[in-house]
Amino acid sequence: MIETTADLAEACKTLAQSDYITIDTEFLRETTFWPQLCLIQMASPDLAVIVDPMAKGIDLAPFFALMADDTVVKVFHAARQDIEIIYNLGGLIPSPIFDTQVAAMVCGFGDSVSYDQLVQKVKNVHIDKSSRFTDWSHRPLSEKQLDYALADVTHLRDVYQHLKAELEREGRSLWLTEEMAILEARETYDMHPDDAWQRLKMRVRKPIELAVLQTVAAWREREARARNVPRGRILKDDAIYEIAQQQPRDAEALGRLRTIPKGWERSTAGGQVIEAVNLAFDIPKSDLPKLPRQNHVPDGAASAVEMLKVLLKLTAEQEGVAAKIIANSEDLERIAVDGEEATVSALSGWRRDLFGEKALKLIRGEVALRFVDKRIEAVEL
């Protein structure tokens, strides 16, 4: 493993001479808010290296400089968590990037295909997964563990070349470019604590419930970041939901909630939660947050959504693209209800060309679905 800044700089200098490099990271985050980076693997067509970011005195500046080099394509599989780590530690987002999981969906390998499944399909190579749940912070790592880690970037070279050629052959390279723009956007990784409530799935019924949800979720987010512990260690989601519904304004009321551990209401954290609840009540009624629009499918539209699902599956099979990347259930509901006015990704860019126009024709009665020789087909009327 590379354990010194000088060796890392030399390796990055060599890797930077290639058109592309494959990258993976190993990390732990079960007991922390911020992921603990334990290993960095990188490979070019001529070099493969493992970097120990935990080595004493090592400076990762050469690695971050390589990530910022826009002449080198950075190839990841399921890139979001790797990029999140690089963004948190280095303050930058690698660019340009190529995510083989997304590319595989565009090329018809199915929804969210795993790395080992993709290697199996492209190279007919079976990856030994016995080291998958390794404690990557432990030192020394065995040769078997290092071989497993390195395989995450060496096979990725061939997967990248295969998918890149497939995209070019099918004329879909620009499709992937549109998808990578989302992964390269800073807002994807830089959630403000005041927006932390958006992670929660609770449906609120009143503006004051939403205000409490927002203030308590923001408090938990800041507390988790400051203490570097998982959000659930600070306060469980269920507790936030109950607090939003019951709105306890003093310790006694907080202590009566079933999701709050006995005595917790008298702790410093309990007092801060009560302050957060009261902060929401200090907001003037006219300034309370508006409830998010709930997608409601009118009576009779459910059948239209089912028809659109059939059309989506048919399109995905015909075009060799994963249905998941074309449209989701919410997209189909909005198209069924709002038609051309639906503000969904399925009606923009390549998705509109591939599926959106046909979907609009279907709900206008200009396309029919029929059963022929045990198969479904779409027919323009």
Rank of each mutant, 00 (worst) to 15 (best):
P289A: 09
Q246G: 03
L39H: 04
K56T: 11
E377H: 10
L381T: 11
D287N: 15
S95A: 13
Q247Y: 02
K123L: 15
A211R: 02
D135G: 07
S267E: 06
G57V: 07
Q161K: 12
G300D: 07
E357F: 10
A48I: 10
R375M: 08
R256I: 00
Q318I: 01
R157L: 13
T215M: 14
F33A: 06
H155G: 00
D282T: 12
P298F: 05
L146E: 12
G356K: 03
V125S: 06
L210R: 00
R364I: 03
G91A: 08
K74C: 05
I260W: 02
L311A: 08
V379S: 08
W175N: 00
I86T: 07
D99K: 03
V51L: 08
I260E: 08
L176M: 11
P248T: 03
T25N: 08
R258K: 15
G271C: 06
L311H: 05
R29E: 04
V51P: 01
V277H: 02
L210D: 00
L183R: 07
W350M: 02
R227C: 10
A6Y: 11
R227N: 13
A61T: 15
I326V: 11
L311I: 06
Q318F: 02
G255W: 00
R220P: 01
E306K: 14
H138W: 03
M105N: 05
D135I: 03
K201R: 15
T22C: 15
E380K: 05
E265P: 04
I234M: 09
A224D: 05
T22D: 01
P140Q: 09
T25I: 08
F133Y: 14
V51Q: 00
A304L: 14
D299V: 09
L254F: 10
K74N: 04
D128K: 12
V102S: 01
D190N: 15
D282K: 15
F98A: 00
V75Y: 02
V113M: 15
Q246K: 13
V122C: 12
D7M: 07
V73T: 14
D99C: 14
T188L: 13
G255P: 02
W219N: 01
D299C: 06
R351T: 10
G171E: 06
K236G: 03
P94C: 09
G300E: 11
A11C: 14
I274A: 05
Q101H: 01
I376C: 04
D353T: 13
Q245F: 09
A79N: 07
I93W: 02
M1E: 07
A304Y: 03
S142N: 14
